[in-house]
Design a binder for these strands. Sequence first.
DNA 1: TATGAAAAACCACGATG
DNA 2: CATCGTGGTTTTTCATA
Lengths: 153, 153
Amino acid sequence: MSEVLDTIDHRILSILQKDATKSVDAISEQVALSRNACWRRIKAMEASGVIRARVALLDPIKVGCPLTVLVLIRTDHHSDAWRKDFAAAVSVLPEITTAQRMTGDLDYVLTVRLADVAAYDTFYKRLTSRIPVSDISASFVMEDIKDTTALPL
Amino acid sequence: MSEVLDTIDHRILSILQKDATKSVDAISEQVALSRNACWRRIKAMEASGVIRARVALLDPIKVGCPLTVLVLIRTDHHSDAWRKDFAAAVSVLPEITTAQRMTGDLDYVLTVRLADVAAYDTFYKRLTSRIPVSDISASFVMEDIKDTTALPL
DNA sequence: TATGAAAAACCACGATG
DNA sequence: CATCGTGGTTTTTCATA
């Protein structure tokens, strides 16, 4: 309901952002609150949508997609229909984990998770067979220096 | 121990990737396995590191960082020392959620989470005061078409 | 703070293929 | 002989009074 998050909320969130398996007991101790008060705050933040989900993060290498590719896309189709088709293609391809429409001269950026470079070629064909793009270029990730789902608070 | 994941493991993972609050009972029912067999598989995947963590995902808008910026960086310092400084700067700045070293002509790509465009200027100054870069450009995310932490299985 | 209900954590045995 | 299922115990966590 309320959209105002105080310092204690922030501290609770920063704990849960890193480890959602922590019990209410452990969290309440860390933020110096009673178990109950802490539990109510968490419930409230879940209800208001501040906490959107709790998910498991997997090891990309161990599940067989060690390669991350950033795909930069430019289009000359600036119609609603094209955008709809593009969004549909994006939602259908599970290798695409993020898709963002950008300002500036590059129109779209995709993050794609793949097994290897050969898989990129397959992906490239599947994508471009679904939607016309005027310019597409791939940049491969050599090293992950940082990769977190935790937002700054 | 074993690094071989079968179809059932994949189904368990795909459930947990989307919702880590699901009880073992519920999961075991979905994958048509006994509670215990299912529990053993999950434990094994936690132990082997296939499941890396369980985290809470927050709403960027409700938490006060609705703006996502992709920062493209080129450097002419290709020394170990520079890389170390860069990594240190990246790890210190919480607004940077991902930092990747790339192939091709752009050296690094950062994903940065911010409150607004003004905050980008502050961020830009803090970053460039810590490390010298020969070229840096920002591209702002206008629309999130897709954004998932779930890897393809 | 107390408390009942639920889920998780773990163990042991026999069955199965 | 790995892995499953059943059925049990103990402990923890939840969620509310």
